[in-house]
């Protein structure tokens, strides 16, 4: 590919469309990864709290 870097960035005049597509993909996938991790972290935290509460009840029971 004998394109210069500037030519590559210009995408033959279609730069806004091409780079916006790839940019949107990167952004949405970043949100996807962060969202999935956040969902797992909060589910883990909730499960931990449930276990602590249950153990507390058992210990407190006569």
């Amino acid at each position: 590919m004998d394109r210069t870097f500037t030519e590559f960035l210009a995408m033959g005049g279609y730069a806004p469309y091409v780079w916006a597509s790839y940019g949107a993909w990167c952004l949405v996938m970043l949100l996807n990864i962060l969202g999935a991790r956040q969902a797992l972290d909060s589910a883990m935290e909730q499960a931990r709290r449930r276990l602590v509460m249950r153990d507390g009840d058992e210990r407190g029971a006569p």
């Binding site: 996807n32 990864i33 999935a36 991790r37 969902a39 797992l40 909060s42 589910a43 883990m44 909730q46 499960a47």
Partner: peptide, 13 residues
């Protein structure tokens, strides 16, 4: 990969 992570969250819940 994303499905696996979210699936774990759903199972925990």
């Amino acid at each position: 990969a994303l499905l696996c992570v979210r699936l774990r969250a759903e199972i925990l819940e």
